[in-house]
Structures are given as C-alpha cells and as structure tokens.
Simulated assay, not measured.
Amino acid sequence: MRFRKQVVGVCLMIVCGANISEAGFRDNFSKWSELDNYAKSMYVQGVFDRMTGYSPFDEAAWLAAQRNALTVCALELKLTAQMLHEAVTKHYQDHPVDWGIPPHFVLGTVADRVCLRYINEERSKISLAPWRLGSGSISSHFK
C-alpha cells in the first residue's frame, strides 16, 4: 500500500511538475500574488505536508505535539489546499503590514491559530503549557 502511494505521488509530481515549479521561492505578498490559484494550492499543500510530515531526526516534544495536532486538525476540519491558500491570501489582505512576511510563515501562523485547540490538547498530553497565540498581524507580535 505504501509503495503504491509513493508511485502515485511520484507520477503526480512528474505530471504537475511544470505548474508546481511555477511556485518557486516566494518571500512576500507580491510574489504570492503572482501565482494562480492552482500554484497557490500546490504551494500550501507542500508547505503543510512538510509541517505535518515526520522528521527522520529526533525532534523536540513540543514540535511533535504541534505536528500531530495539525494532522488531526486538518483531518477533523477537512482542510483543503484551497482553504489554506485562501486563508493565506485573506491574512495578507487583512494585514498589509505583513506583506513582507513569506507565505510559508503566514501559512504556519494561520494553521496554528486555526488548530490551536488541537495543539493545546497534544501539548497537555505531554505536560506542556498551552500556547497563547495572538491574533491580528504577525509582525505586531515581534515589536
């Protein structure tokens, strides 16, 4: 079963390669805006897969809790790549002060906010304090 998924994944990468490569490296809202909706969906899917994928290295307990929580959250809320890319775009539209922040960072922040309840449930399982994530612009939290 796993081998079949890997073969399907490789085939999809080959077929979609030209469109996916269009996403390239995006480091701000302007570059994000240049992408069409398909490329935005592929971009966030790749970033989200990395956020929820297993690491071949030992990872900190808090990071494993976050990864597991994001996975459960995405399944339970039935998050799609389209929903995620629309959330990134909406964040940029609502917070022009964050236009200089890369979309992968915006996605991580938005996903953490949406899935905060799940993250805190996982953190409590390993005796970690709950996260208290702010709302609004990302850059305002670094002042």
Results as ranks from 00 to 15, higher is better:
residue 4 R to A: 15
residue 4 R to M: 10
residue 6 Q to W: 03
residue 10 V to Y: 13
residue 11 C to T: 13
residue 11 C to M: 11
residue 12 L to Q: 09
residue 12 L to V: 08
residue 12 L to W: 05
residue 17 G to E: 08
residue 22 E to V: 13
residue 25 F to Q: 14
residue 28 N to K: 06
residue 30 S to E: 11
residue 31 K to P: 00
residue 32 W to D: 01
residue 33 S to H: 11
residue 33 S to C: 10
residue 39 A to P: 11
residue 41 S to A: 14
residue 42 M to W: 12
residue 42 M to P: 09
residue 42 M to N: 04
residue 44 V to L: 10
residue 44 V to W: 05
residue 46 G to I: 06
residue 46 G to N: 12
residue 47 V to H: 05
residue 49 D to A: 15
residue 52 T to N: 01
residue 57 F to M: 14
residue 57 F to E: 14
residue 58 D to N: 09
residue 64 A to G: 07
residue 67 R to Y: 01
residue 75 L to W: 07
residue 75 L to S: 14
residue 78 K to E: 12
residue 79 L to K: 01
residue 79 L to D: 02
residue 81 A to S: 13
residue 84 L to M: 15
residue 85 H to L: 01
residue 86 E to Y: 12
residue 93 Q to I: 07
residue 93 Q to W: 00
residue 98 D to A: 07
residue 99 W to H: 07
residue 100 G to A: 11
residue 105 F to I: 12
residue 105 F to Y: 09
residue 106 V to Q: 03
residue 107 L to S: 01
residue 109 T to P: 02
residue 111 A to Q: 02
residue 112 D to G: 02
residue 114 V to E: 05
residue 114 V to D: 03
residue 116 L to H: 03
residue 116 L to W: 07
residue 117 R to L: 08
residue 119 I to M: 02
residue 120 N to S: 09
residue 121 E to W: 04
residue 124 S to R: 09
residue 131 W to E: 03
residue 131 W to A: 01
residue 135 S to G: 10
residue 136 G to N: 13
residue 138 I to F: 11
residue 138 I to D: 06
residue 138 I to V: 07
residue 139 S to M: 10
residue 140 S to H: 07
residue 141 H to S: 12
